[in-house]
Nucleic acid binder design. Structure first.
Lengths: 148, 148
DNA sequence: TATATATCATACTAAATTTATATGTGTATT
DNA sequence: AATACACATATAAATTTAGTATGATATATA
């Protein structure tokens, strides 16, 4: 019950892409990896998943790179994270199912279904635009605090 | 972002203990392991964590075993699962923090804090009593469906 | 058309975590 | 004293996660 580093990379990259896209041009994996200090090759794998889930689109070749497939305000944290993480509902096949089906079913219905709904609704209510704007405000405060 | 098998064992065991406790006596780890077809020694490790978190209490020696530390209606899925799993807020120390603090902070505030609250509130609203009662009703239907 | 810059694909490795097992000690009941 | 249980610790196997390595494919531009 923990979101992986990979999921955080995906969110951070999505915010970074949204930010820089507003100033025009595609954004290369290398430049994001540099800015965020993430392994470029690893990030490419993250992007492959995000593309497959239609969160990012890409252009090959020089001046190529990535963009959000939809607008920042249409792309949610849920979109990004479900592209990366297994769903929390995703039940490992074994467990107590065979031996105590009524207990397994009770746990699914009473714990995991409502939990999954709560997670989904929480993550769907935050967009990349929200995150970007918060980050920009933060950046200003941080700069101010440093007397810049 | 996935609840481990261990967490499911803990929930299943808590339900089983609550069920059998109503018919009196302590419940041994062995008997639960047998019923649920879980490794006994592994289950003991799960119980050690549940004890430490004050979800279970125990009695040593013959006729000993485990019980819920509080009543079934006072014990929630949250109590059981937080004894086992790392919290979802538990942030892996690295990530993008150093290189892009404003992005890291935005993700924490906009995604993880609300998510953690949503998870907590969802899990706290389900008690072991709820799960037990659902399981009993299920058991009846299953028996009926088999013409028993 | 050559070249540079980018995505895309696949295979591999290392480390960490999860799921167990194994073996034994301590404690209370009969 | 024998038994039935919890409790403790060490180890092993399997799986997952994070990251590398290598190279192929596409495309803008000189």
């Amino acid at each position: 019950m923990r979101i992986s580093v990979k999921g955080r990379y995906a969110l951070a990259a999505a915010i970074n892409i949204a930010d820089r896209a507003e100033r025009g041009g595609n954004i290369s994996a290398s430049s994001i990896a540099d800015e965020l200090k993430i392994s470029k090759i690893y990030l490419e794998q993250v992007f492959a998943q995000l593309k497959k889930a239609n969160v990012l689109s890409s252009v090959k070749g020089p001046k190529g790179g990535y963009r959000l497939a939809k607008s920042a305000s249409e792309t949610t944290a849920w979109d990004v994270l479900t592209a990366i993480e297994l769903s929390i509902t995703e039940v490992p096949e074994e467990t107590v199912r065979a031996s105590a089906p009524e207990i397994e079913m009770s746990i699914s219905e009473n714990v995991f279904k409502p939990l999954d709904d709560a997670i989904k609704s929480s993550l769907q209510s935050v967009t990349v635009r929200d995150m970007l704007e918060y980050a920009r405000r933060q950046d200003e405060s941080l700069a101010y605090a440093q007397g810049i």
